[in-house]
């Protein structure tokens, strides 16, 4: 088994854990943590691809920087929405946010 496949499998397992967390948790902040874990898994894969397939193409590292920015953006917007929700309703439990279905 090559190291590349090992890294990809680790990434896949982390992605699965993150997906499980994002779907199974009821709290906004916990859901965000699941999403962060999924983004972390994508970064593992990207770095593995850069390292083992195209180490001379630095757009690969650039892509990782973009994903890190996505994490920061997700955190900022998520906490902003969470704060607004908490001010309005006093909780960020998603079970209590069913009216957002419309």
């Amino acid at each position: 088994m090559t190291t590349l496949i090992l890294a990809l499998i680790i990434g896949a397992v982390l992605f699965g854990i993150g997906l499980y967390g994002a779907l199974s948790q009821t709290n906004l902040v916990m859901i965000m943590m699941g999403v962060e874990l999924m983004l972390g898994a994508t970064m593992v894969n990207l770095v593995a691809f850069w390292r083992f397939l195209h180490p001379d193409v630095y757009a690969g590292q650039m892509f990782v920087l973009v994903v890190m920015t996505v994490m920061a953006v997700e955190a900022a917007v998520g906490f902003g929405l969470g704060t607004a929700r908490f001010r309005a309703k006093g909780s960020v439990e998603m079970e209590e946010a069913a009216e957002l279905k419309g």
């Binding site: 990809l8 499998i9 990434g11 896949a12 397992v13 992605f15 699965g16 854990i17 997906l19 499980y20 967390g21 779907l23 199974s24 948790q25 009821t26 709290n27 916990m30 439990e93 079970e95």
Partner: peptide, 21 residues
Amino acid sequence: DMSHQQREALAAGIVATLLAV
């Protein structure tokens, strides 16, 4: 307890992992 739809979430997680693997 702050979780819901445990079984479906677990299934989705496992399926996603298996597909990626």
